[in-house]
Amino acid sequence: MGNITLGRYIPLDSPIHKMDPRAKIMAMLLVLIAIFFPAGWTGYAIIFAAAALTIIIGKLSFTFIWKAMKPMLFMLAFLFVINAFLLKTGDPLFTVGSFTLYSDAVFQTLYIAVRLLLMVMITTCLTATTKPLDMTLGIEDLLKPFQKIHVPAHEIAMLISIALRFIPDLIDETQRIIKAQESRGVDLQEGKLTDRIMAILSLIVPLFVSAFQRAEDLANAMEARGYAPGEKRTRYKVLKMEGRDYILLAGAVLLLAGMVWLAYFR
């Protein structure tokens, strides 16, 4: 469980880490939209270069990105098999018995693979360089305009930050319970089906009990300190946009515009 890399924050000191979370979230959204324009391989090469540059400036390693990408490989393999059987356009590449592989099946899968890789790169650039709490501050601020149409911006941000805050705790708790039950002879790796079900139950029940307990404790602690969702609150940390944040945003807008141009106006 210590090997989950997708979405994990890496505490480093880089210009990207210091940027305003609002700028980073906006830039990520813009670039994610840009990926979905059919701008061809040139477009993808440009986005890849931009993402790679961000990764280098953010002092992240490419092996880290690769690790985050790994879980997707199975999905891509699955997709390729389905495409190979269903897509019968383009040039036939080779034939085995009654099955013929067409070039479109290969290109379609490759297209999706590249898009997925770019998406993982871009989202990792955000999550690996932004503290979860900064992220929720950013989300709250970005949702503020929608409060006019009754989107509960603060509540959503609070929900997200509580959920994020408890992920490491729950992972620790799970590992603790696994160890406690292993000490009672539970075997999570092997055994008969009934034993395996029992083993999983012996983890899930205590985990739920303690999660509910934590939730109740937290709710009580928040209420005891006078927390009320609608109330006007001040912040300890005040977000401030600086020069580099505007540069990032400008870059993202430029990238999106470039993709639109490559896709429709060339």
């Binding site: 603790r176 160890k179 406690a180 039950q181 000490s183 002879g185 012996s202 205590p206």
Partner: peptide, 30 residues
């Protein structure tokens, strides 16, 4: 693990069975 019984900190969090007897019998059955 049967010969060395390890009781963790706050072991009450490992209880999961419907009845006390079943929970205590869980270890020996394993």
């Amino acid at each position: 693990r049967g010969d060395v019984g390890l009781v963790f900190q706050f072991p009450e969090y490992q209880l999961f069975e419907e009845t006390v007897l079943k929970d205590v019998a869980f270890g020996p059955k394993n």
